[in-house]
Simulated assay, not measured.
Amino acid sequence: MDMKHNGSTAQSDAAGAYASGGPLILIADASPSSRDTLSADLGHLAYRVSAVESGSAALMMLRSERPALLLLDQNMPGLTGIDLLREMRGSRENAQLPVIIVAHSADAASAVAALNAGADDHILLPCAPPVLAARIERQLDRAREAATLRQAVGALDARLVRRTLEIEELQTRIEALLAEKAALNARLASRDRTPDEATRSSPVKSIAAI
C-alpha cells in the first residue's frame, strides 16, 4: 500500500498487512501523526489507503483516482476539509462520494458546519479502529445502495425512452393505416354509386344542361 506524504510516496512499515483489493480510502490530514495512525488502522482493517497532507493534494488526486470514501481534516491550512467538501458537492464527478470530516478537537459548531456543508459523518480523533470501521462501513453501504438505485433509475429511464419511441412509431403506423382505410372507403363508395347517381354527378351532364 502506498501512502503519500508531503507530495511524495512512502512505503508504510505495515505494508504487508494492507489489503490490495479492499475499498480505497483517501485521507487528507495536515497532521503527519494522524495520517500515519489512520493509514495504519485502516490498512489493518483491510482497506486500501492513500494519504495526503492537504486539501489541494486531495483535489489533485481525485482527478486520477476514484476512492470509495474520503476522510478530510476539517481545519487543514489552505483548502480546508469543508472547502474541499463544498467543491466536491458542486462537482458532477465527485458529488456522490461519501465524505467523513475528521476533527482534532471537540467543537459542536464545527461539526454542525461540516454536516451542513454536506458531510456524511463527523468524527472526533482519536477514534477507536472498530468504531472508525463501523462509521466507514455504514457510509460505504449507503453509497452502494444509492449507486444501485441510480442504476435502476437509469435502466428505467432507458426503458421509458424505448417504449416512447415504440409508441411514436406505432402511432405513425396507425395514422398511415387510417389514411389508407379512408382512401379505400372513398374508392368503395365511388364504385357503389348507382348509374343515375353517377350521371347526376357527371360534369359532362352539367355542362350539357347549361
Rank of each mutant, 00 (worst) to 15 (best):
H122S: 01
A186F: 04
I167Q: 04
R135G: 06
K205A: 10
L132N: 04
A176S: 05
V153H: 00
V161F: 05
L160Q: 11
R135C: 06
A158L: 09
H122R: 04
S110W: 00
L124V: 09
Q139D: 00
A176L: 13
G118D: 03
L125V: 04
I167V: 12
L188T: 03
S202D: 08
T199L: 13
R142M: 12
D120P: 05
A128Y: 09
P130C: 09
A155M: 12
L177Q: 10
A152E: 14
A155L: 08
K205Q: 14
A189N: 02
R193G: 02
V161N: 06
E180G: 13
A183E: 03
D196R: 08
P129E: 08
V112Q: 09
A198Q: 15
A109N: 07
D141V: 12
R142G: 12
H122W: 04
V131G: 01
A183H: 15
P126D: 06
L140A: 00
A133D: 15
Q151W: 02
A186D: 03
A198L: 15
I123E: 07
L177G: 00
A128D: 06
G154V: 07
L184T: 04
S190K: 05
R144F: 13
L115N: 12
L115D: 00
P203A: 10
P203F: 07
V153F: 11
L125P: 05
P126C: 04
E175C: 13
I174W: 01
D121H: 02
P203L: 13
N185F: 10
Q151A: 10
L125M: 13
A176M: 03
L156N: 05
L184D: 11
S201H: 13
A119E: 01
L156H: 10
L188E: 00
G118Y: 03
R191M: 15
L170W: 01
V112D: 11
L125C: 09
S206E: 13
L149M: 05
R144G: 08
I123A: 00
N116C: 09
E166H: 05
S201P: 00
D120S: 01
K181C: 03
V204N: 02
R193Q: 01
N185M: 14
D192T: 14
T199I: 11
R193W: 00
